[in-house]
Every structure is written in structure tokens, then in C-alpha cells.
Design a binder for these strands. Structure first.
Length: 890
RNA sequence: GGGCGGUUAGCUCAGCGGUAGAGCGUCUCGUUUACACCGAGAGGGUCGGCGGUUCGAAUCCGUCACCGCCCA
């Protein structure tokens, strides 16, 4: 069966993938004697569906992995999904609400049952989409962060860290997400610029007529004020320090303190201190040993319970009316009331940064709660050292700066979440609140019995761990740890981590910390950071903008290979990767081109020949393309080894299209039907084989289809074929020079034809003069090729007089004369030559100036001087030849 | 406010001390034994501004401008 005329990826992508998977093409082999190559997939959210970010991230990994597999490495690309605490819980909750039920209504056990049910039914959407993309991880080893094994890893790690004092429970101010009703970590908070107000509120000084004006962006928190702070060196307030003010509305009397936190330049220079609702204020409170009453509850509503007894309000009814009000409604009421009491001096529009939950999208409330924390600063020390000392390298290198700056000022990591879906914290409380951290309920009870001297009832902590806690263990939890399976020893530490820079702190840094802490070794030696995908105009993709590109739709339209090639080709640039249908369509042309080149090979019976030996190649054309293939192999391999994937793609593109299709196949056409057919067929199929192997990592489907079709190996075997190697090519430099000469000659003639408007249909003849014996040999050899490619009827040595009316092409010493008596416009030809001459003359002048510069001669390296002398000789000769050519048509 | 990255052909980018490049797009010509998702040819840049180092700067240094991101 011959190849279809039209390249149709839908005809084979699915079946090719099935073959790979069924034949164990993706499987790691722990019993192999080859060196492992390990890449841990960034586990996508189990609720997710493939977006362009995945498409980029996964394709980059797949290219690396397929390349190493072909190099003979024992590749483990470890797949799996993340339980994604909040995202998954929300999704199932939404389902329940649609059914008229709720999480609370069905209770924790049933809810969790429901989530698992969902996971089993629909949790494989993302992995089946990865299959469509052509990703080749070892699916037989797929893991889920809530698997039994991975859950044990979480519990064990928690216990280890607790034992070492690196996990502790504390009452701290945390970022509270009122929508989720949970604490979140610093990283999950994003600061947004918001147009708000700065309210200037009068705080009367107690027992005096004086007033201090305090500026605040959050008047509702004044209920929880415990002090007013001024800068110790601010002369305006020096005399107030130590005095008291009466807080409007609550009537509480609070002290005026001196603290460097207050900035004399900002507002009035006096700030109210509300330790329970602001991180800076909390620090001030600690320095001055101040109380920290909360005035907001976990839903972001005003609560008076902690301040009621302290209040001496003149309007208790108003105050009580605030209780239970939403924070924003309360703000409104309080401002109104202040205004009514004439306590509001003025209001200024004010642009300021407000913390928002990155997932919930609502303003975050700093709240005092009991949470579990991880001492990240301690874990960061060896993690910083590992990068400083080069055990881990970031590509590109500058990301190390980002890593360092965050790691060196890292804050305690709040790891508890007030959710149901996730790893339940392995801590139990005794009747008196004593904490027992253990690996199981049984051991917790044993510990408690020992502690109390008798059996007691324990309550397990209701909270779960931050999703990223389990993700941090991914490089070893997926390999069976805490069990010591052979895989763990063989595949840890791994090699490369491929990740977007947006999760460098969430995930990459934490994996390094946990890997070093738990395993004593860094989890990988290279971190390859890629950019984020943007639309074709470089804009961030968002649903509201309507510019979201769906990779599955692109695969549907253009095939997975076209999409893969596009993201790889675009990946070279800095931080943004532009992607859209136009680009993918353009790159599909390349895949089509390859398809058609293969069809041409097929038509000419260029089948793989195991007996083919490159060193026996006799033809200059054979030697040239084999040599070009050699250099392409070297360059492409080098690019891949150095994570320059877009360069790798471009190198292959150029070789396939420009060298192989445009020149080699065109030049081979006559020979393939003549006496040279045997050698050319061998060379052609050999080079096609090289091409298919070189391109397989980036466009695996089409290359595999062609590989099987031509019988390079059985269908589905390219994935395991060996990476091409350089072969010995006799007299390669000579072949290189000769084909370069031929390309110049054909291009020159084509250009002249075009410029002189010689109709494409008319065959012209060419005469040559001043040709050296070498050139005469070449002309003989390539007469037919020149004829075909430049539409030339004959190339003969000029004998006798010059014809009348001609154009000239100058190639080294030889001059090729195109007699165009009827067509030529002498003025055009004269101008053409004159332009060339002035270019050459300009070149001469430039180099002469350089060589006449004594400083240049004295300082420049000898080879540069020499090179310039040669260039000058060449340019001068060019001028002379152009002068001669001009003289001939004067 | 601090830090990082960027500014090179219409677009996307490569080059990072020694002759300014590629792909796409544009324009012109063209169906010649794979391919119009094609072939051929052409045009197009004072390498963001200024200053410095150097025999020589797109490339190194300083500075400014603008854009993007991260952290406060």
C-alpha cells in the first residue's frame, strides 16, 4: 500500500499510540543494565483538563525523554495526578449544591466517598488527553497523591519533621480565606492593586482637648485597635508618646506608642495598631506586648466577643448592631457613623495593594488561628547550598537568583488547611489538648496511654495538609518510599525537572527541601524552567479575554505533531511562549513537507537497505548529503543535550527542508532514474531514516508512521530505535565545496533570469569562459542538474567571439555568459553589475581602512588580520572581474 | 520601593567582542517527474537613546527611556 497523497494525522495517531503503549514502548526497565534517565511529571490536577501550559510542559519533557530513550537510556518518566485539595473539593461541592445538597449535609465520610467516586469515574480525563498529545510516560507506574502508598509517605514525613521539631503547632496570624474557610499559605495570596480610600479618623487624646488623626484603609478593624503608633523620631508626636487616645465607636482607651513601623511620610504619620488583623501590626504588638483581640470571625464577619467587655461605647446599640455584619458592610456603617460623630476628618482616594486568595478571588483576612507550621527556613539551608554548590543547576541560570532570594528570606510554611479532601493531619488531641503525632491511630493511642498512664479518648485533628506538602514528596513517594523498593534505589535521585517558573516556589523549591531532608539527596540535578504560554499577540490567556487556546482543538485540526513542533519551536525564547492556530497551521506545513518527501522516496523505491555503507558512497551528491546529515546529527544532539529544544527543532527543519528536499532530492531526481539509481536509493533511504529518527522526539506520530511504512523496523518500533550516529564519509570537504559551488551557480542563473524577466518556460543556453579544469569537470558533472534546476538547455565553453546581448554570472574565476540577445535590457544588466561592483568596492574600502590601521595590525589576533587580508584579496578580485564584465558590455 | 528579564527586518525570535541572521509574512514570477500545506527570486534593519572601555561593540561597562514579571 502506498502512502496517502494527503497527510492526515487522524488516520494513524491513535493507532500508533496504542502500539507504543501495548508494546511497552514507554516502560522503564529496572532490571536493565543501562543508565537510568528519570523525569518526574509535574502531576496535573486530577480535576484538570489539558491546557496549553500542559501542552508545552509535557511536550518539552516528552522530547527529552524520547531522545534519551533512543540514546539507549533506561527512561523512567513517572506519571500521575495530584488530588488538588481545594480545587477538587470545590468541584464536588458544586455538584452537591446542584443536587440541592451540601458537604455539611452529607457529612465528612460520605463526602469523601463522593470525591473518590468522582475520581474513579472522571479522574482520567487529563491522562487520556496527555495520550492524545503523544506523551510517553510509563503509565503502568501511574500514581495519585492520595494513593495508599503516597499517603503513607506523607504521614511518615510529617512524623519525621515533627520528631525533629521542624513541624509545630502554633497560634499565629495566618492568611485566612473567608470563602474557603481555610488558612492558605503566603504563596497562595496575590496582591492586587485596588482603588480604595484612605480614611482620616480623629482619635481624641484622653483627658485633653487634643486629637490625633490616624489614616487607615480599613476602618472596620478599628474595633480591634490596641494602640496608636508614631515614629520615635517624629517631632510632631513626641509629646504624645505614652499618652492614651479614646477609640471612636468602641470608646476603648489605648496607648500611644513609639515604633519604627509607622512611617512619618505616610498618612498622618500616626497609625492604628490592630494586631489580630494585620501582619505588620501583629509584629508591633509583639514588640510592645500588646493584646490581639480578633474582631472578625472565620467568615469575615464582625464579632464583638473578644472586645465587648473592654468597650465603653457611648452608643452601645450601634456597636451591637455591627455584630455579625459582613466586613464590607461593617466598613460602610462605621464610616457613616464616624462621619456623623464628626470623627472623620477627610477621605482620600487611595490606590493600594490588597491581598486576594489566588483561587477564591476574595480578599484575604489575616486571622489569628491555631495552625500547623513547617520550619521552612531550616529546610531551606541545605536546599540553598545544593544550588550554590552546583549539585542542582537551573536552566536558564538566572532562575537561581529567584530561587535564592526567596529561599533566603523564607517564612514558616502554614501547612494545615481547613478542608476535608486531602491528607488528614496525623495528630491526635488528648482530653487536655496534649498532642500526639503518630503514624496511625493505634500508635497515637499507645502514646497517649503511656503519657496519661491510662487509656483516654483521642480526637484526630480535623484538618488536612496543604496539597503541595504531598507534591513536595513526589520524586520519592512515587518510587515506593517509605518502602525500600529496588525502584527507589535505581531511580532516585532523578535527572531533570521540567517546570514553568510560576511554580518554582510552590513545588520546585519544596521538592528540593523535602528530597534533601527525607532522602539526603537532591531529587534532580537539572531544573529546566520554561516560560508561560501566551496567545499569538503575546497576551495572557484568559476566559474573559476570550483568547484561550484549546490544545485539543489544535490537535483535532492540525494533528498532535504540528502542535508539538510549534510549542518546541517557540520554547526557545525568554518567558513567554506564543501560541495560536496560525502558528500551528504554519508548522503543519513542515510535517506535510516531510510526508511528501517520504512519498517521493517511496515513488522512487528508496527502501531501507541494511547493507548500505556510507563509506562506499562514490557520488559527490551522496557524500554531500551524508556529510550534511552528519553535521545535523552533531548539532541536533548538542542542542538537545543542552536543553536548547527550539534550536534542535530548527536544525532539523533546515536539514529536512532546505538541504534534503530543496537540493538533495532535486539534484537526485535525474540520477534516481538512471545508472546511479542503486547508490542514490541507498543514500536517500539512509538519510530519510536519519531524518525520521532525528525528528521522532518532536514529531513522534508521523515519523513512527513513516518508519513502519518504509520498513525501517516493525510498526511502532521507532520509539525504541537507536539515535542516529555519524558515519564515515569519504572526501566530505570536497563534496561540500562542490555542492556549494553548484548551489551558487544555479542561484545566480535563477536570479538573472528573474531580473531580466526571462519567461520561466524558455530554456536558455549558457556559455562559460575562464573556467579552470576543476570547474570544467564540475560543469560536466552537473550539466543536467543545472539544466533542470535553472532551466538551461546547454552549458558549453565559449569558443570564438562573445555573443551579442548577454548577462554575466561571475563565480570565482569563471564567468558564465547568458546570451539573451532578444530579451536583454543592457541598461538593466549594466546596473545589476554596477550594484555588485559598488558593493564589492565598498567592501574593499572597508577592509583596506582596517588593514591600514596600525593599531589593528598591532592588537588584533593574527588569524583575524589574516582573515581580513584574504577577504580583501577576494573582494579586489571581485571588483576586477566585475570591471571586466562591465567592459564587455560597454 | 527592591530585584530579574526584555528592547535586533512588518511579526516571532537567534546571534552575545571580529563580514547583521532565520522562520513566518510582504512583493514579483511560476504548475518543471513528492509537495500550492509547493517552487524560484526580491525587497526590508543607523541591532531602544546617550556616554564609556576596546584596534574593533548588536555583543562588555555605565546611564536613561519604555515594556513585562517577581518580591515588598
Amino acid at each position: 500500500m502506498t502512502l496517502e497523497k494527503n497527510y492526515d494525522p487522524k488516520a494513524f495517531e491513535a493507532s500508533i499510540y496504542e502500539k507504543w503503549e501495548q508494546n511497552g514502548g514507554f516502560a522503564a526497565d529496572p532490571s536493565s543494565s543501562s543508565t537510568p534517565f528519570v523525569v518526574m511529571i509535574p502531576p496535573p490536577n486530577v480535576t484538570g483538563s489539558l491546557h496549553v501550559g500542559h501542552a508545552l510542559n509535557m511536550t518539552l519533557q516528552d522530547v527529552l525523554v524520547r531522545f534519551r530513550r533512543m540514546q539507549g537510556r533506561d527512561v523512567l518518566w513517572q506519571p500521575g495526578t495530584d488530588h488538588a485539595g481545594i480545587a477538587t473539593q470545590l468541584m464536588v461541592e458544586r455538584e452537591l449544591i446542584r443536587e440541592g445538597s451540601s458537604r455539611e449535609a452529607i457529612g465528612r465520610p460520605d463526602f469523601l466517598e463522593r470525591v473518590w467516586q468522582w475520581k474513579h469515574q472522571q479522574g482520567h480525563a487529563i491522562t487520556s488527553q496527555l495520550r492524545r498529545l503523544g506523551a510517553s510516560p510509563d503509565w503502568s507506574r501511574e500514581r495519585f497523591t492520595m494513593d495508599e502508598g503516597l499517603s503513607r509517605a506523607v504521614v511518615r514525613t510529617f512524623n519525621l519533621l515533627y520528631r525533629d521539631g521542624l513541624i509545630y503547632r502554633a497560634r499565629r496570624l495566618v492568611n485566612w480565606d473567608p470563602k474557603f474557610g481555610s488558612a492558605i499559605s503566603d504563596l497562595e495570596v496575590e496582591m492586587r492593586e485596588v482603588n480604595g480610600n484612605l480614611w482620616y479618623v480623629r482619635y481624641p487624646v484622653a483627658d485633653s482637648e487634643q486629637v490625633i488623626v490616624v489614616a487607615t484603609t480599613r476602618p472596620e478593624t478599628m474595633l480591634g485597635d490596641v494602640a496608636v503608633a508614631v515614629h520615635p523620631e517624629d517631632d510632631r508626636y513626641r509629646d504624645f508618646i505614652g499618652k492614651h487616645v479614646v477609640v471612636p465607636i468602641t470608646g476603648r482607651k489605648i496607648q500611644i506608642i513609639a515604633d519604627r513601623h509607622s512611617d512619618p511620610e505616610k498618612g498622618t504619620g500616626a497609625v492604628k495598631i490592630t494586631p489580630a488583623h494585620d501582619f505588620n501590626d501583629f509584629a508591633v504588638g509583639q514588640r510592645h506586648d500588646l493584646p490581639a483581640p480578633s474582631v472578625l470571625d472565620k467568615k469575615g464577619r464582625i464579632t464583638l466577643s473578644e472586645i465587648r467587655t473592654e468597650c465603653q461605647s457611648e452608643n452601645p446599640l450601634f456597636l451591637e448592631g455591627l455584630n455579625g455584619l459582613d466586613r464590607f458592610e461593617a466598613r460602610h456603617r462605621i464610616v457613616e457613623q464616624l462621619d456623623a460623630l464628626n470623627m472623620l476628618e477627610r477621605v482620600e482616594a487611595h490606590l493600594h495593594a490588597v491581598p486576594y486568595g489566588d483561587r477564591s478571588g476574595v480578599p484575604i483576612e489575616p486571622l489569628l488561628t491555631d495552625q500547623w507550621f513547617c520550619n521552612a527556613a531550616e529546610l531551606a539551608k541545605p536546599a540553598i547550598a545544593a544550588v550554590e554548590q552546583g549539585q542542582i543547576t537551573f536552566v536558564p541560570k538566572q532562575w537561581e537568583n529567584t530561587y535564592f532570594s526567596w529561599m533566603r528570606s523564607i517564612e514558616p510554611w502554614c501547612i494545615s488547611r481547613q478542608l476535608w479532601w486531602g491528607h488528614r493531619i496525623p495528630a491526635w488531641f488528648g482530653p487536655d489538648g496534649a498532642i500526639f503525632v503518630a503514624e496511625s491511630t493505634t500508635t497515637a493511642y499507645e502514646q497517649a496511654a503511656q503519657h496519661y498512664g491510662h487509656d483516654v479518648h483521642l480526637t484526630q485533628d480535623e484538618d488536612v495538609l496543604d496539597t503541595w506538602f504531598s507534591s513536595a514528596l513526589w520524586p520519592f513517594s512515587t518510587l515506593g518510599w517509605p518502602d525500600l523498593k529496588p525502584e527507589l534505589a535505581r531511580y532516585y535521585p532523578g535527572d531533570v525537572l521540567v517546570s514553568g517558573f510560576d511554580i518554582i516556589f510552590f513545588w520546585v523549591a519544596r521538592m528540593i527541601m523535602m528530597g534533601l531532608y527525607v532522602m539526603g539527596k537532591e531529587p534532580f540535578h537539572t531544573v529546566y524552567m520554561h516560560g508561560l504560554v501566551r496567545d499569538e499577540r503575546g497576551q495572557k490567556m484568559s476566559k474573559t479575554r476570550g483568547n484561550v487556546v484549546d490544545p485539543l482543538a489544535l490537535i483535532e485540526r492540525f494533528g498532535a505533531d504540528a502542535l508539538r513542533y510549534t510549542v518546541i519551536a517557540q520554547s526557545g525564547t525568554g518567558r513567554n511562549i506564543k501560541l495560536g492556530p496560525r502558528l500551528v497551521e504554519a508548522n503543519r506545513s513542515f510535517v506535510t513537507k516531510l510526508w511528501n518527501a517520504a512519498r517521493f522516496c517511496e515513488m522512487n523505491s528508496c527502501w531501507p537497505d541494511p547493507a548500505f555503507r556510507a563509506e562506499d558512497a562514490k557520488l559527490v551528491l551522496s557524500r554531500w548529503i551524508l556529510d550534511t546529515a552528519n553535521r545535523t546529527i552533531i548539532d541536533a544532539t548538542h542542542a538537545l543535550e543542552n536543553f536548547r529544544l527550539s534550536e534542535y527543532a530548527m536544525i532539523c527543519y533546515r536539514f529536512a527542508w532546505a538541504d534534503f528536499c530543496d537540493w538533495y532530492l532535486e539534484l537526485a531526481k535525474p540520477g534516481l532514474g538512471a545508472e546511479d539509481a542503486a547508490e542514490l536509493r541507498g543514500v536517500t533511504s539512509y538519510v530519510l531514516g536519519v531524518l525520521l529518527r532525528l525528528l521522532h522526539p518532536v514529531i513522534p506520530f508521523v515519523t513512527e508512521e513513516l518508519w513502519g511504512h518504509f520498513g525501517y523496523g516493525v510498526s511502532g518500533s521507532l520509539i525504541r530505535a537507536s539515535w542516529p550516529e555519524v558515519v564515515l564519509v569519504p572526501e566530505a570537504p570536497e563534496a561540500r565545496h562542490e555542492i556549494a559551488w553548484l548551489v551558487r551557480l544555479v542561484s545566480e542563473i535563477r536570479a538573472i533570469r528573474h531580473e531580466m524577466n526571462v519567461p520561466a518556460s524558455s530554456q536558455i543556453s549558457v556559455l562559460v569562459r575562464d573556467a579552470s579544469p576543476t570547474v570544467l569537470v564540475r560543469i560536466d558533472r552537473w550539466r543536467d542538474a543545472v539544466g533542470r534546476l535553472a532551466r538551461v538547455a546547454s552549458v558549453e565553453t565559449l569558443k570564438g567571439d562573445m555573443p551579442t546581448g548577454f548577462a554575466q554570472a561571475l563565480l570565482d574565476d569563471a564567468t558564465f555568459i547568458l546570451p539573451l540577445a532578444d530579451i536583454i535590457d543592457l541598461a538593466v544588466e549594466r546596473n545589476r553589475l554596477a550594484v555588485s561592483r559598488s558593493k564589492a568596492a565598498g567592501e574593499v574600502e572597508k577592509i583596506e581602512r582596517k588593514l591600514n590601521n596600525q593599531d589593528f595590525i598591532a592588537h588584533a589576533p593574527e588569524e583575524i588580520v589574516h582573515e581580513n587580508q584574504q577577504r580583501l584579496d577576494t573582494a579586489r578580485a571581485e571588483v576586477l572581474r566585475l570591471d571586466a564584465a562591465l567592459a564587455r558590455i560597454r
